[in-house]
Design a protein around this nucleic acid. Structure first.
Lengths: 342, 342
DNA sequence: ATTTAGCACTCGATACATCTGAGTGCTAAC
DNA sequence: GTTAGCACTCAGATGTATCGAGTGCTAAAT
């Protein structure tokens, strides 16, 4: 266990390094307010902290830099609450003042503001499908062969998919089918659709609809398709402002990862409720072992439905980012709940 | 006017520089096949070409580099047709083999392949709205206050927007309204909707629908909203592979520009039919004055409806990119036309 | 009148030596 | 237990010499 003085010094070193991006020397620390020790004493403590694995030395005659373990201890035990200034608070409140007109807009705007306030890369994962319930199904024929299947949910989300019609199907048949679907499946959660389709609809369809078998397959396909996760990314280039990423090769791997929309979701790791911090080496993906990711979930009516996260260098303003994320997730949850819980 | 020999030499220099990324010296050129002159002669010609503004010298004892004017002459007069290899052709044909199931998918896949084959950044602009005709309108109430308005076009595109309902409107009224709209507006091009709404629907509505005035405003708002252009970007980080962009500061401006979805469309400049090449300084945006953009349009039934483009360094493989773009735009046009012209 | 060989010259790149100073570890005194 | 003092280390900055690719110009060759 670390002594009080060791904690004090570790805290000072991390704080300093986060803002200066330069290895921190013993003299710098000893001159700080609140530290009443000479540089020699600090040096001894630093040597101990290094031996314990909390600090690292880039080379013999340089100052110390926090290790992943050091950051971890800092985040878990030392971090002090951050006070947001009026400008930042204003930006965040702006988001909640918006009237929700489109789900995606809110998410996009959230990512935008997060990135802007923190100066790091923001990732927002849209509300998960399992809270969406079917409001309405519509099938609009385009011509003899094709139609568009449209699914509207109680949350106002609209999914659509082009489908191929069986040969010679008559418009009346489609209409009949849609009526059955809307009567039977209204208010069913989307993830149950496939199941319900077979359990309750199949029999009904056989009785009333021609070519029911083909239609059934097509329906199954269009109603139960993989929901493409809606991930929004903002401020990917912000990482380039960090002095430790002034090298194209270092930045390239990260940006290539961020460019791949399908990979983004993996940055969140296992979906977890509440705030999670993953620091440097703790990250699975090689490309971001020099970065930290802080994520948290937001909820609708108490159930977590989506996530927001910040990607930055390991030398990140943890305190500020954590405050911002907590504040934002809280606000977002309230906003969603009051909007859709009625 | 340039002499034949000057053209030959300029061509050789540009070709060489495109592949080596190093200033080209007189000796390099004189040793090339097809050039029967000594380095001294080449030097004299180079001096002339520089004076005429086709070449530049980074410093006194360095070789020559093409200027924007030099590239321009090369593209306009010297370029030779490029032959695609089997691998590249295979990749491109793969695209056309796909069955169209979703417009956006095709566009996304196009960008993907373009970037992969050329190793530069690809930008694809989705088909413009003016060829889309109304197929079906639907208004799905979500609760007392809100509804989703859905517009389906003959091309299978689905637009949707959350709308606020006037207080106390009855479901029957909405149904009546939707019926009127579908009867009167079927097959009307989307861009005419607003106009037709007032000319033909307003009178009908007043007779049959309560609260017609509020509904009219809401409809107008939801039917005529700005179509958000669908721009797809792929391979933004490819620019980092170029030796002249190994500097974070140079890359940053470009990537920041590409990150802004709303700005992307400006990269295409004025929408033009056919192939356009904009080289270095010719570009309006400062961030890409070290880059070239090649764009072309693709069409549906003879009318241009969208664009594809490639962004790369001024030192770009113009010949190859032009060939690829032409080939792809041609194939895409055929594909779209055969799909939607029936 | 062109072309080319020859040569002096330029200047970025590279290598190497030197200097500087921030920071360390250790020891001995406080 | 703390600190002053000091020798030591080493990355980074600065300075100097050398190298060589490439040039421009002149005079000879074609």
């Amino acid at each position: 266990m670390l002594s009080d003085r060791q904690r004090l010094i570790l805290n000072a070193i991390v704080d300093n390094y986060i803002h200066s991006a330069e290895p921190v020397g013993s003299r710098t620390i000893s001159k700080k307010d609140g530290i009443g020790f000479s540089s020699a004493t600090i040096r001894n403590e630093m040597a101990d902290l290094e031996e314990l694995g909390y600090l690292e030395q880039p080379h013999t005659s340089a100052g110390r830099v926090p290790s992943t373990k050091g950051y971890r201890f800092y985040v878990d035990n030392l971090i002090q609450p951050h006070l947001l200034n009026d400008l930042e608070l204003g930006k965040l409140k702006q988001l909640f003042a918006e009237r929700i007109h489109h789900f995606e807009q809110v998410i996009e705007y959230t990512a935008q503001i997060l990135s802007h306030v923190t100066n790091y890369t923001a990732i927002v994962l849209g509300p998960e499908i399992f809270e969406h319930r079917l409001k309405h199904i519509q099938i609009v024929p385009l011509n003899e062969e094709q139609a568009v299947a449209i699914v509207v949910t109680n949350t106002g989300r609209v999914e659509n998919k082009l489908i191929d019609l069986p040969k010679g199907v008559r418009p009346q048949e489609i209409e009949k089918l849609v009526n059955i679907l809307n009567t039977k499946l209204s208010d069913v959660p989307l993830w149950q659709l496939r199941q319900r389709l077979y359990q309750e609809i199949a029999g009904e369809m056989r009785r009333h609809v021609e070519q029911y078998e083909e239609m059934l397959h097509i329906l199954e396909d269009s109603l139960t398709r993989e929901e493409k996760e809606r991930v929004y990314l903002r401020g990917a280039t912000k990482i380039m402002n960090q002095p430790e990423f002034r090298d194209v090769d270092k930045v390239k791997d990260i940006l290539e990862l961020l460019e791949r929309n399908d990979q983004l979701i993996h940055l969140f790791g296992a979906p977890a409720e509440g705030l999670t911090v993953r620091i440097g080496q703790e990250n699975q993906l090689d490309a971001i072992k020099q970065c930290s990711i802080i994520t948290t979930s937001y909820s609708l009516g108490g159930k977590p439905v989506g996530m927001v996260g910040i990607l930055g260098p390991t030398r990140m303003e943890y305190s500020k980012v954590i405050t911002v994320l907590n504040y934002l997730a809280e606000g977002l949850s309230q906003m969603l709940t009051s909007e859709f819980e009625k």
